[in-house]
Design a protein around this nucleic acid. Structure first.
Lengths: 106, 106
DNA sequence: GTATCATATTAGTAAATTCTAATATGTAAG
DNA sequence: CTTACATATTAGAATTTACTAATATGATAC
């Protein structure tokens, strides 16, 4: 397994570091959706969601496909879906011990 | 699979959202290490590393064990190790497409 | 108990990320 | 080519997260 450098890895992992991005990933994990569908579903605003989508695209986690004036986003591939599933599996196992780490260091 | 709520999930995922934390996880993935060993290996400072360790502990990703005046940390269990490995697998696959997402939104 | 060493915690500052609002781009329809 | 709608981009303000330095805690050895 060819190891990718740590900075590239961090860019990749940033995709999972914000609630909105994770919610987007979950939302399009099984079926592609347009930006406006995602905006509506997450009750976000267009600009903000669009920025998070750009981030996820940059992380390689999602891909978009233009169709007329709509852009449909979907999770990149099965491996990424598997990773998302694995989060749930590991988290369920670990769940009971999470307490501090309030999304920051203290 | 019993789904954990999104806020708990986010606390968990914060464990992977900082370079130092990911480096710590990689460092103790296969063998436990004391705080001072980690500090030395990452060339960090004691306070900072200690805070990141507290975060990872809070995320449920690592566990510590006191032995005399030393505390030995290790990755929580095999599932967490598997998840770390999976990052590398998926990242290698996705690698070529990472470009933007400079650890932020633009 | 006192000294020493390892680790943890705290408070305040510094830095990075995210959000909001405004504007730009691009596509389709008329 | 103008309008309308979907999405993207930008700039700056607001918020969150991380770092530094100082101090505290806890364990061992004396």
């Amino acid at each position: 397994m060819l190891k990718v450098d740590i900075d590239t890895k961090m860019k990749f992992l940033q995709g999972f570091s914000h609630k909105t991005r994770v919610q987007i990933l979950e939302s399009i994990k099984e079926e592609e959706k347009t930006v406006s569908q995602i905006v509506e579903e997450l009750e976000g605003n267009q600009s903000n969601i669009s920025q998070h989508l750009a981030c996820l695209r940059g992380c390689g986690l999602i891909v978009g496909r233009q169709e007329g004036k709509y852009v449909h986003y979907r999770v990149r591939n099965q491996l990424v879906r598997d990773l998302l599933t694995m989060f749930d599996v590991v988290l369920e196992d670990v769940h009971k011990d999470i307490a501090c780490c309030d999304s920051h260091i203290d």
